[in-house]
Write a protein that binds this DNA or RNA. Structure first.
Lengths: 254, 254
DNA sequence: CGACCTTTTGATTGGCGTCAAAATCTGTGG
DNA sequence: CCACAGATTTTGACGCCAATCAAAAGGTCG
């Protein structure tokens, strides 16, 4: 899928490095891992990078932009499983046939950098600290996923949406600080109302009504792909969102 | 929490080994890893092994029995995040303070074997193949968690329950084959109706009504902690459950 | 045998889905 | 710079799925 979209550039031109993957690795090792990185490529908003059940033989880090990972059901409904932001690592978890179990779509123009499987294998063997780093990234993803289970299973639609907004907003401030305008307090916000519905198992109509109440109550203001949270404390409270989840990642080795 | 419940025995007496953790490690190495294992201990049904936000400095494998990992909300509601079966590994993902973000409770009499953090650290350094195995276990857990997101977010209560039953049933057949009676087709089934409700975000009353329809339609029969699936194919279809998810785990290195 | 837990059943309520249409915004090309 | 097509947001009316409340029946275990 991705191969036909590969651009020529190799990764020596990448100026942004994968914070998530190499964050705990010292500078010398980062330079060493340079050689394991392969092609990087660009996608524009709306492009589908991968369709669930198709095979791939690489993983990648997101350099810029925003992707959603999702599953489709037979009736056409869609569940968003994860929203990835710059620095996130994507593309492990394949079955014996090499099939990745979710689809991937760019919600904004995005730039990724590929790591082919053979290179990941070699990299983790030669740099055990990177293997441990991979465990930790995976552990944290699992915790976030479990928190979303809690969100979908036990919270009301209002609580769930408050949580979703706070979680994404907090991650954007950490992972894409450039998108946050300190003058106005406005952040770029990648999801539209239909997307939020698909993340929470609600209809876009209902999402719209909840957002309307949030606006009325002076909690947020938002426009096209823009979000300003006016009362962060109250919104966190409604969503039972704990900022520690983002600021203090769950891990084991690092 | 666990320490005060520790029984004296050390792990040399363990006859069951952690299939999940050492499944891909050769016999010689398994014997080597023996030394990293610490105490093992027992819990009876209903005992709480750990309360969310408390600190621990070990992880463990479940040897026998069944545990649930869950979160409580402030209003008393509970979301079951994961049901662990023999062979499963539990207890990574802690934050900087060493806090594990979920509670753990034994739903049946259970036996676990501890690995203290220091030993896991040493073990993964000395046996890189175990580090990679840990990544894979974690990857598969994440995929299962994501499938439960799909379950909660997009499926009807009937579909969701069919999926839950099929998933647990299939995992029991693989991970606790002794619990499956080939003569009667009956399996031990650890969850009661309230638990299933807490796993799916539904009330026990509603679970009961759905189970009644499953019985009426001749799909299952069940009694106290016992389950017999009469029409496996149809139940899988209703739940949109794919047995490959269990039989062909998602992974990257092994 | 009795206390407690789990399952079962009924009646009523409300949250969110569904359907439909209008209003607004966005990006594109002339 | 405006016109237009398409996407996204907004609003309204109505219906249904699952929650809630309540109580009885059945099982399990000490």
């Amino acid at each position: 899928m991705i191969t036909k979209l590969l651009k020529d550039a190799n990764c020596s031109s990448c100026t942004v490095r994968s914070r998530a993957l190499f964050g705990s690795v010292d500078e010398q090792n980062v330079r060493l891992t340079q050689k394991y990185r392969d092609k990087h490529c660009y996608f524009s908003a709306g492009e589908i990078l991968h369709r669930e059940q198709n095979k791939i033989d690489y993983a990648f880090t997101l350099y810029s932009g925003c992707l959603i990972l999702y599953n489709n059901l037979s009736n056409g409904d869609r569940q968003i499983l994860r929203v990835t932001l710059p620095g996130d690592f994507v593309g492990f978890s394949r079955n014996s046939k090499g099939e990745l179990p979710y689809s991937i779509k760019a919600v904004t123009d995005s730039r990724i950098c590929l790591f082919f499987d053979a290179n990941v294998l070699q990299m983790t063997s030669e740099h055990p600290e990177i293997a441990k780093r991979l465990i930790d990234l995976q552990l944290n993803d699992t915790v976030l996923c479990q928190q979303r289970l809690l969100n979908l299973g036990q919270k009301s639609s209002t609580e769930g949406l408050a949580y979703l907004i706070m979680e994404l907003y907090s991650r954007i401030k950490v992972q894409s600080p450039k998108e946050f305008d300190f003058k106005t307090g406005e952040t770029f916000f990648p999801l539209n109302q239909a997307d939020m519905g698909d993340a929470l198992g609600l209809t876009k109509v209902h999402i719209n009504r909840i957002i309307a109440t949030f606006k009325n109550e002076g909690l947020i203001s938002c426009g096209h792909k823009k979000l300003k949270i006016i009362n962060e404390e109250r919104l966190s409270e409604i969503g039972q969102f704990d900022i520690g989840l983002i600021k203090d990642p769950f891990r084991h080795f690092s």
